[in-house]
Design a protein around this nucleic acid. Structure first.
Lengths: 203, 203
DNA sequence: TTTATTTTAAACAATTTTGTCGAACAAAAA
DNA sequence: TTTTTGTTCGACAAAATTGTTTAAAATAAA
């Protein structure tokens, strides 16, 4: 039995992920995906019947990639300060692996109300509530400000980590950075975010 | 001389702004703009010859709306702390006026390399450098952390202010907020950002 | 070699999206 | 009133996009 060339199918999925993430569903042309993958548009329909199907695969793959990061995050016991650093490392690690992820999230939020509803009802509140618990400990010790919740905190962290990835083309153009310099910028930024957040909640 | 119905033309531009901001150029259908404006698609071509033209008008209008905010911002002398609060109020005020603005910025950055180049070379560095100057004063006094630049700071502020607007549909769905509750959330968030940022740079 | 699978190119149809045209209509000017 | 100018709509043409089909290679397994 002749084997299937998973390589091409995989190439298409990777290209589709890139293009769908950047441009949303309506904004992408299947031609753009084929070009990105370096194959003919016929091949695209050979492995994935329609644009909708391919998008669904991308959606599954992308959301699936978040799960292991989440469980690794939740499976460890430490104090607030260390856990915040842990969250920032995990989040930036995910974005380094999938730099288009923040774009994808922004796009589906504004394009697919059904997916948003699914996420809003299904996504675990584990992280905000764990943060609330750790915050409560520190508040009693008087080491952190009162007027902040776990939800505020995770929103702050997501904001700080995600925006640089939303603006990569701009940040590169602004200072004429090449890919290597961009990575260095993001590496430094991760550490700066840690300092900023830890100070930001300190009383 | 018969008068022109500026009302319809304006309605189209407002609708186009909304749709282009949310979906980018490739992602928007002129039908969606016409529906949003409550007029027929023919009217759209009557006032604006092509989709490209209309997008250009939206681009001009949107970028034009930023100028007064910027000049109001730069025209005042105050210390670091007050100026940071001033920036946050100005930025959130702009986003309140144009809630789709952060989306628009994210879209053109990933869709229009030419606009990005134009912005990257033309946009004033007034704000980062003014922040640098104010930071230098405070660093000498020893009241703020050393390892932060004006660029870091403005990126932090933009991140914190913009992301909630990128995620409005999600934030509304998550807690079943209506429009009024959403406004209240954003109002409170503005104040929380001020506290967070001021603490975040404090030594 | 023979066979089955993968790949491409080209042509094609179907659908969606964009843009145009002409007739009808309204309102102001003559 | 008639004419002119500006506005609106429906029908239509043109272009772009998606998806299918065919034939012909290239490739890998039997």
């Amino acid at each position: 039995m002749p084997k299937i060339d998973h390589n091409t199918k995989e190439k298409i999925l990777i290209a589709a992920e890139k293009v769908f993430h950047r441009s949303g569903f309506k904004g992408t042309r299947t031609t753009a995906i084929a070009e990105e993958a370096g194959i003919s548009r016929t091949m695209l329909h050979y492995y994935y019947s329609t644009k909708e199907d391919l998008f669904q695969e991308v959606l599954n793959k992308t959301l699936g990639a978040v799960i292991p990061h989440l469980s690794r995050l939740l499976g460890q016991e430490m104090d607030l300060e260390h856990w915040i650093c842990h969250i920032i490392d995990t989040m930036c690690g995910l974005f380094e692996e999938k730099p288009t992820f923040p774009n994808f999230v922004a796009n589906i939020i504004n394009e697919s109300p059904d997916v948003v509803m699914m996420l809003a009802t299904n996504v675990q509140d584990d992280i905000p509530s764990k943060l609330d618990a750790l915050l409560a400990v520190e508040k009693q010790k008087g080491t952190v400000i009162e007027n902040i919740t776990g939800e505020d905190l995770i929103l702050n962290i997501y904001s700080l980590c995600a925006v640089p990835y939303l603006g990569i083309p701009y940040i590169k153009a602004k200072e004429n950075r090449n890919d290597e310099q961009m990575l260095e910028f993001l590496k430094q930024r991760r550490e700066k975010i840690k300092v900023f957040v830890l100070h930001g909640i300190r009383k």
